[in-house]
C-alpha cells in the first residue's frame, strides 16, 4: 500500500532577485513500512522537499505545483489547522538534528515530549508523562532522565531525545533530517542502531535525508539521488549502489570512502553546484558532466524507467 506519493512537487524560494528553484518537478512514492533515502550535496533541495511536504517552509517558500498524496489524501488541499492537528507530528513527524539546537535549551526534556503528545491527543497530563517516560526508555535514555535539561545531556542522548519526541504520537511516517550529523562517529553508530531497531520494532516508514550514502544504504530500502533541485536517479539501494547509471550518482558513490575493498583515491566532482536562481538550461548537471552532449545543454532529460520496477534515471546517456 502506498503511504506517500509525491508527484511533480515544485517549490521555489521567493527572493528579491527572483525565484530560487530549490525543488523542481520532484516525484517519488513510498510504500508503508519501507524507507527512502534522499541523498545529495548540501543545497540540492533534499531538506526543502521535506519541509515542503511538512509545511514547515519559512515565509518565502512557495509551492508552485504538484501533488502530495498521503494515505490517499491530497495534502496540499488540506487547511492548515487540520494539517497541524491531525497530520503533522500525529501521522508524520520529523527527527531534527538534536545535537545542535532542536531542543529548547531551558525546558526539561520530559516537558518537551509531553507537549508534543498533549497537542495532538486528548489524554491527561499524567498519561502523557507516562508515555514520555516509556518513549525515553524505548530510545535508551532511561525514564529517570525525564527531568533533565538538554544541557545536562550528551550529544547522543540529545539526539535520542529528539527521536523520542518524533515518536511521541506514533506516527506512520518519519522524516529524519541528517539525524547523525555533528555527532562523534561512535555516537553516530549508536544512534543509527537505535533508529534501525525502532524501524524494525515499530515497522516505521521513514524518509531519511542525508548526504551520507553509507548511512542511507544501511537504513533504507530505496534511494533518490537529488541534484540541484531535481531527482536524477531513483531506485532500490542495492541496485543503485551496484549499478549507478547517472554520471552524478557514479561520481557521488566514488566520492565516498569505502572501509572494505581496495584503497582507491577518492574521486572529486570538479566545479560547483549551479546557482538555482538561474539554473543552466537543459540538464542541470551538464556543466560538470564529463559525458555532456549537445542535447544535454538544450533539453531537460525526463526520468525514464530502466530495467524493473523501481529504477529510473533522468539522463540522455541511458535508455533510448
Amino acid at each position: 500500500m502506498t503511504l506517500l506519493k509525491v508527484e511533480n512537487l515544485t517549490m521555489y524560494w521567493e527572493v528579491l532577485r527572483g525565484y530560487v528553484k530549490a525543488v523542481d518537478d520532484v516525484s517519488f512514492s513510498l510504500e508503508k513500512g519501507h524507507s527512502l533515502g534522499l541523498a545529495g550535496e548540501s543545497g540540492c533541495g533534499k531538506t526543502s522537499t521535506a519541509l515542503a511536504i511538512l509545511r514547515l517552509l519559512p515565509y518565502n517558500g512557495r509551492i508552485m505545483g504538484g501533488n502530495i498524496i498521503f494515505n490517499g489524501e491530497e495534502l496540499l488541499q488540506m487547511n492548515d489547522q487540520r494539517f497541524q492537528k491531525e497530520i503533522r507530528w500525529k501521522k508524520m513527524s520529523v527527527i531534527f538534528q538534536g545535537a545542535m539546537n532542536a531542543l529548547h535549551p531551558i525546558q526539561r526534556i520530559g516537558d518537551q515530549i509531553t507537549e508534543a503528545i498533549l497537542l495532538h491527543e486528548n489524554i491527561s497530563k499524567k498519561e502523557a508523562v507516562d508515555r514520555a517516560s516509556k518513549l525515553l526508555d524505548l530510545v535508551g535514555i532511561g525514564a529517570e532522565r525525564i527531568d533533565r535539561y538538554p544541557h545536562e545531556l550528551s550529544g547522543g542522548l540529545k539526539q535520542r531525545t529528539v527521536i523520542a519526541m518524533a515518536l511521541a504520537c506514533n506516527p506512520d511516517l518519519i522524516f529524519a533530517d541528517e539525524p547523525t550529523t555533528a555527532l562523534d562517529v561512535i555516537v553516530q553508530a549508536q544512534v543509527l542502531k537505535v533508529i534501525k531497531e525502532l524501524q524494525h520494532k515499530l515497522n516505521l516508514s521513514m524518509i531519511m535525508i542525508s548526504h551520507d550514502l553509507a548511512m542511507i544504504a544501511e537504513t533504507c530500502d530505496e534511494i533518490a539521488i537529488m541534484y540541484a533541485g531535481k531527482i536524477v536517479e531513483y531506485g532500490d539501494v542495492t541496485t543503485i549502489y551496484k549499478k549507478p547509471l547517472h554520471p552524478y550518482t557514479q561520481k557521488l558513490i566514488k566520492a565516498f570512502p569505502s572501509v572494505i575493498g581496495p584503497k582507491t583515491e577518492l574521486a572529486t566532482i570538479h566545479g560547483f553546484p549551479p546557482d538555482l536562481l538561474k539554473p543552466p538550461p537543459g540538464c542541470r548537471f551538464h556543466p560538470r558532466c564529463p559525458y555532456a552532449m549537445e542535447i544535454c545543454r538544450k533539453k531537460d532529460p525526463q526520468s525514464a524507467k530502466v530495467d524493473g520496477k523501481y529504477h529510473s534515471v533522468a539522463c540522455y546517456l541511458i535508455g533510448d
Binding site: 513527524s93 538534528q97 545542535m100 497537542l119 529528539v162 519526541m165
Partner: peptide, 12 residues
C-alpha cells in the same frame, strides 16, 4: 533557532 522550528513542527 532550531528549537523554534521544532516547536512549530510539533504543532505549537
Amino acid at each position: 533557532e532550531d528549537y523554534i522550528q521544532t516547536a512549530r513542527a510539533k504543532g505549537v
